[in-house]
């Protein structure tokens, strides 16, 4: 069987690959959106923090013999903790200034973090094994489903939808949404907004770290992996529109799939299709697909 001249197995394989990439886009752009909402900072260091997550997995295995599942729990704590320190020490001072300062600060931070990792690890990639429980593939009849890839998509969906649920449906989320609109008033009501800001940044960073760990077995871990993905993620954020939680999840997954399908039908376009879409969306809806016009 074929779909538009492509064997269904290849089609579905690319679709899954697209979903896997889309999962990373979704998790990263979700973190960016949450951080931007409350902190008003476009976090350019997000890719570097994602890379740090992957290196936590690599080092935990290499130095301590701790496997994937350990890393999945440890990386968000360690990298999130690092994020909290950064927020307390550096970001705190620039909230009242123009976006541009936050962008420059976090961009500088990304360069420093990457520089340090390059110094210690060089630029060549490090392989990371797929966890034992998720090796191999499942034959679904119509396609062979690689277990780990299916797991990545599922895990990221759970993380993203869990985040969406907390933000849109719980009391804590109501504080967060209200704090995004009018932090002064929320603080005047008695909510410790500075603490909420710190924890929110830590949480957004933790999402990036989880993304890094999930990516470790499917890519080569290297200090530049963050820079490579973050440009696409920023395009995703622009397309989806800053500040919409569900928007960033859907756009991330959707663009991953579109990229995957572009590989099947017109491979030359696969690395540019996202940016073409970005240009079109910017012309038609400058605030993004899910963004609110200001």
């Amino acid at each position: 069987m074929e779909i538009f001249g492509v064997p269904i197995q290849a089609f579905l394989g690319q679709l899954l690959l697209g979903l896997v990439n889309g999962s990373f886009y979704a998790m990263l752009s979700l973190g960016l959106a949450v951080i931007f909402g409350l902190l008003n900072i476009i976090n350019f260091s997000h890719g570097a923090l994602y890379m740090m997550g992957a290196y936590v997995a690599f080092l935990a295995l290499d130095l301590l013999g701790l496997g994937f599942w350990w890393s999945l729990a440890l990386a968000p704590l360690i990298v999130g903790g690092f994020g909290i320190i950064i927020e307390r020490l550096l970001m705190r001072w620039i909230y009242k200034l123009d976006h541009l300062y936050g962008l420059l600060l976090t961009f500088g931070l990304a360069l420093i973090i990457e520089g340090v990792y390059r110094y210690f690890f060089g630029v060549s990639g490090q392989p990371y094994p797929v966890p034992d429980a998720l090796r191999g593939a499942t034959d679904l009849g119509f396609m062979i489903l690689p277990n780990y890839r299916a797991f990545v998509v599922l895990a990221s969906l759970i993380v993203c939808l869990g985040t969406w649920y907390v933000i849109e449906r719980t009391r804590l989320g109501a504080y967060l949404r209200a704090g995004t609109e009018n932090p002064q008033l929320v603080q005047a009501f008695g909510v410790n907004v500075p603490l909420m800001v710190t924890l929110t940044f830590g949480f957004g960073v933790a999402l990036a770290a989880i993304g890094g760990v999930l990516a470790a077995p499917v890519i080569q871990i290297n200090p530049l992996m963050g820079s490579n993905i973050i440009i696409v993620v920023f395009a995703v954020v622009v397309i989806g529109g800053m500040g919409s939680i569900l928007g960033s999840i859907l756009t991330g997954l959707g663009l991953g799939v579109i990229e995957g399908l572009a590989k099947v039908y017109y491979a030359e376009a696969s690395s540019t299709v996202v940016f073409v879409i970005m240009a079109i969306v910017l012309m038609v809806r400058p605030a993004g697909l899910f963004g609110k016009e200001k």
């Binding site: 009391r171 109501a174 504080y175 949404r177 209200a178 609109e181 009018n182 009501f189 008695g190």
Partner: peptide
């Protein structure tokens, strides 16, 4: 708050 429902606004403080 526009991102909160009437009741969420009521329950916020």
């Amino acid at each position: 708050f526009s991102s909160l429902s009437c009741e969420e606004n009521l329950l916020l403080p």
